[in-house]
Design a protein around this nucleic acid. Structure first.
Length: 408
DNA sequence: TCTGGGGTCCTAGGACCC
DNA sequence: TCTGGGGTCCTAGGACCC
């Protein structure tokens, strides 16, 4: 028997969790949004989708389309806690669980698993456990590889269970638009359309050399994708060959700003958030990237390499402010981001110098307080007025911050 | 008060070295 | 005394994902 891979995707995850927690929201159009002034719909219930609300829409557009829409401010802890419980359910069925996002995972199974029962029966058992213990629905796709499993899980949402067997692939792919495949977005499908490639079967029929010339290394992968092939393994989260590459935070400002002092305060705040998260995961980084977005949405980045690896907010913010000093900008800013890259696992080596050690102890003590009482309970003096929560968690959040989609 | 936030990977061009 | 050329590292931008 060939490989059996499942892709499991929660249905309207954040919205479903909210409806589960609050019975008054059940059966009604709701949209989960961030707490910031300029926010968008992160997830919306199926009732809202039926009325034209979509992910990524701003509040006003969503309300315009659906006057009865109920907005719910995102509650990060609720979703990450629920997510952790769901992944532990998966672990009862197989040790091979690759966390793909806060509400999605790939599960790998050995053929021996299915000697006495079918993959569908296992999938039904997983769905039942999630419904019994968490109270929400999910959609499952079963196939020989990740690409097809992911495609399958999206085919009968919500509460779906779809199997794409080896013999089904050709039929499924015949009229399927290339954009339905994970990895082919707007730009790629537009470029393919210019080459008269619109369906997966047309992609499969295209010459590998041609795709290679047009798309480089991606072309190789496209050729395989058209045929429904995907050699990438399910890599259990925690067993990746490489770890996290970067840790960053960004924020869209409540209003566009141009005042230097205000910009610097945001940089300090973001640096503190980045450093705290790096320390929590025992990471240090040696590259700082400052991201800026002008009021006209033009976005650009500048980076600086540090002489030493760090997890100290002061070092990070100093580097980010140095970058800022080297730039001149005339337009007001709408977004600021700070990211720590070139990240390595902190080896835990004791700091040699007393001052360094004292500082390290202080930072860890601050983290402990903030872990218990919420972010920014304890922070640097310049940030005392910046205690509001940092907004919505991204659906791309994952417990160990790792994602890996291999070509081969 | 139109357009969030957190990531990874690939590419292209320049610096630098031998 | 011609404009070689390979390898590696760094930076910035962009595509893609949820």
């Amino acid at each position: 028997m060939a490989r059996v891979i499942m892709h499991i995707d929660m249905d309207a995850f954040f919205a479903s969790v909210e409806q589960k927690c609050n019975p008054r929201l059940r059966g009604r159009p709701i949209a989960v949004i961030g707490s910031a002034a300029r926010t968008v719909v992160t997830t919306c219930s199926y009732e809202a989708r039926a009325l034209g609300v979509k992910t990524g829409m701003n509040k006003y557009e969503a309300r315009r389309r659906c006057p009865s829409l109920i907005f719910v401010i995102a509650d990060n802890r609720k979703y990450t806690d629920t997510s952790t419980r769901i992944f532990s359910i998966f672990k009862r069925f197989t040790p091979i669980v690759e966390v793909y996002s806060v509400d999605e995972a790939f599960l790998g199974f050995t053929p021996a698993e299915f000697l006495s029962k079918s993959p569908e029966e296992t999938a039904m058992a997983i769905k039942k456990s999630i419904m019994d213990e968490i109270g929400i629905t999910c959609s499952v796709g079963i196939a020989m590889n990740k690409l097809m499993a992911k495609l399958a899980s999206a085919m009968e949402k919500p509460d779906g269970l779809t199997v794409i067997g080896e013999d089904d692939i050709e039929k499924v792919m015949r009229e399927l638009p290339v954009s339905a495949l994970c990895g082919i977005g707007k730009k790629l499908s537009a470029r393919l359309a210019l080459m008269n490639i619109r369906t997966c079967s047309e992609l499969a029929a295209s010459s590998r050399g041609l795709l290679r010339r047009h798309f480089g290394i991606i072309g190789e992968r496209l050729s395989l994708m058209g045929q429904g092939l995907d050699p990438s393994p399910v890599v259990p989260t925690g067993e990746e060959r490489t770890g996290v590459k970067s840790v960053g935070h960004s924020t869209t400002l409540p209003r566009d700003i141009i005042e230097r002092a205000l910009i610097e305060r945001y940089i300090l705040k973001l640096s503190e958030m980045v450093a705290a998260r790096a320390r929590r995961h025992a990471l240090k980084g040696a590259k700082v990237t400052l991201t800026l977005r002008y009021s006209d949405f033009t976005t650009f980045t500048r980076q600086a390499t540090l002489p030493e690896f760090t997890d100290d907010a002061r070092v990070i913010s100093f580097a980010a402010r140095s970058i800022l000093d080297s730039m001149k900008f005339t337009m007001a800013l709408r977004l600021i981001g700070v990211s720590l890259g070139k990240v390595i696992k902190d080896d835990g080596q004791v700091e040699l110098f007393l001052a360094e050690r004292k500082r390290g102890e202080l930072l860890h003590a601050m983290d402990a307080v903030n872990d218990r009482f919420g972010s920014f309970t304890l922070t640097w003096g310049a940030l005392v007025d910046e205690r509001e929560p940092s907004g919505v968690i991204s659906p791309a959040w994952r417990p160990l911050g790792v994602k890996r989609v291999d070509v081969k």
